[in-house]
Design a protein around this nucleic acid. Structure first.
Lengths: 339, 339
DNA sequence: CTGAAAGCGCTTACAG
DNA sequence: CTGAAAGCGCTTACAG
């Protein structure tokens, strides 16, 4: 393959200085229009690209955004949320010629922080997107301390240290609770995910408030995000003397596990038990019964995260940005409460 | 935040040369053990990391692997295959301190090639993993031409230009066909994915051969990978005068869509129709009826791809590597053929 | 509008 | 075992 073409090669070949080549390629003033064209044509012809290392080293950006997925592999591969979000992030990045540096780790928040410090220390990235806000999340302090531009998918943060994209979990909760109340359900269970996640806390509060508002009873029980865990909790709930007539699950996967557990006990969905998933996906419409679910535009959420981060890197802090509200898609898994 | 610490800063602070610092940090000979320790301790204390740009510019690797996902966003977000594969790739990379540069594009093979050329031209990556081999795949020529180390998930390539990870689709096909034949099925349909994918061609051939071997009839019909497409083809098949008693789907998502279409027509699964998915996932065990599926260790597949690529970058070409065979998980969606 | 030169932060022969 | 120096491929003031 030989040595790769450099800017100096092109300068020599065209009989001009390296600086002129640089100016021409970067659309800077300081070169005649005809010179610029000759440079661009040659670069095109040779398939030349500026070395990102050399460019980054001489002061400019890396044009790379970092993203760490720190959830158990099982969850990551079962929940399509992450890929949908990622696809959204990517669409903005690639439009603008940026790239995504990705790291998939298990459920190890410490490793996540190490990764940010290393990436930033090595000048590999210009910013990061923080997913899954946790209670007393140490990541916010870390990125502030080291000066790494970041946007948090969570909040709203009190002090708006870094821009955040917050979701009105209370409003979403009200949609679900009202739907069930309208169908006549009075005893509802909410199988919430781990309370270490801030969004799960907000959902609990939202559900409690909405239940009070419509005068029904909702009990929240914590369950892991896994299928087996959700099945287990469902069985427990359904063997009670007064079982709930509706259960709210954190995701479509847990909802499916719940339905399977219920069916195995002879409890029919939706005749005996209504089921709602807090996260819609294509899957929800493909299974039988199809799942009533809270639907949001997850790729748009990812796009927004990327935009807010790129704005921050460019110097504009957008503060607290509210994400679009969800919509309830009523499907076959919810029906009128049994008498 | 001030200026970031550099190697020179540390050298000055310790009263030694930059070279000594570099040798110490990189485990090279040429520094006294005590000096080395002092350097390492200081680097640790300051949270110093070598600038990846500077390092890459002075000749060493970038320690980054590129991966482009060029499938429709819908498919990417519905099929968990990609995330499972990715998680496997990542586990190897992060173990060895490498990173993954990811690009998610639509179904645009040309953009994929542009991306490789740009990444490689910009010296952003040391190698790429090529997913989803296509018929007359132009990517193999591209990476060879520009000298970009690459491993192909596909093949086996005749000339072993680049290492490839090939799957014995014929063996997998035999597992499925034999399972159905043993259950007494004689009229089987195979809803194959687009023939532009080499693995789909191999599956068709494998199914045909296996069917001949056990003396049953299998017809292959092409369908897109989407739920609606699979539902449509299923309806067509089931309205024939002599409908199949078993259908083989490309994935669990298409299988679910097929089951839904069949159920809507009053065809019961598995009583009237047996259903097999060519790709297992956690989902398959969560739905009712649970899906009989060909199961492979997809994260292991991703790990292998990463290992073969890193070996290539390190100078060792592993040629054609065979991926572990799949296993058939018989679940509730297949049963004895109706009389 | 153009060219010569310094500098980004490392690595690595090359002398001592 | 250690230090002074060149070089990787760009960008960007600074003179002309």
């Amino acid at each position: 393959m030989g040595r790769r073409t450099t800017m100096s090669d092109m300068a020599r070949q065209l009989g001009i200085s390296k600086a002129a080549v640089s100016y021409a390629l970067n659309g800077q003033p300081g070169v005649a229009a005809t010179t610029r064209e000759r440079v661009l044509a040659l670069a095109q012809e040779l398939g030349w690209h500026a070395s990102s290392s050399a460019r980054a080293l001489s002061g400019s950006q890396t044009k790379v955004v970092g993203l760490v997925l720190s959830r158990s592999p099982d969850l990551l591969t079962t929940e399509t949320f992450f890929m949908r979000f990622l696809a959204g992030v990517e669409s903005v990045l690639s439009e603008r010629g940026w790239s995504l540096l990705l790291r998939v780790i298990g459920d190890h928040p410490e490793v996540e922080i190490e990764t940010y410090e290393r990436w930033w220390g090595e000048r590999r990235i210009d910013g990061v997107i923080l997913l899954d806000e946790r209670y007393r999340d140490p990541r916010v302090n870390t990125v502030e301390r080291v000066g790494l531009p970041a946007v948090l998918c969570g909040g709203p943060l009190k002090d708006a240290a870094i821009p955040c994209l917050w979701t009105d979990q209370g409003g979403d909760a009200a949609l679900v609770v009202q739907h069930l109340a309208e169908l006549g359900h009075r005893r509802v269970a909410h199988l919430a995910g781990p309370a270490e996640f801030v969004h799960e806390r907000a959902r609990r509060r939202g559900v409690r408030r909405a239940a009070r508002a419509v005068g029904i009873d909702v009990e929240t029980i914590e369950a892991p995000y896994t299928g087996p865990g959700a099945g287990e909790r469902t069985r427990e709930l359904l063997t009670r003397p007064e079982p709930p007539t509706a259960i709210i699950y954190a995701s479509d996967v847990t909802a499916l596990a719940g339905i399977r557990a219920a069916t195995a006990m002879g409890v029919r969905v939706p005749d005996d038990l209504s089921v709602v998933s807090w996260d819609d996906s294509q899957l929800a419409g493909l299974v039988t019964p199809s799942l009533t679910a809270l639907s949001r535009d997850t790729p748009a959420y990812g796009r927004l995260a990327a935009e807010v981060l790129l704005d921050l890197v460019a110097g504009s802090h957008r503060g607290r940005v509210q994400v679009d509200a969800s919509v309830l898609k009523a499907r076959e898994s919810t029906a009128a409460a049994p008498d």
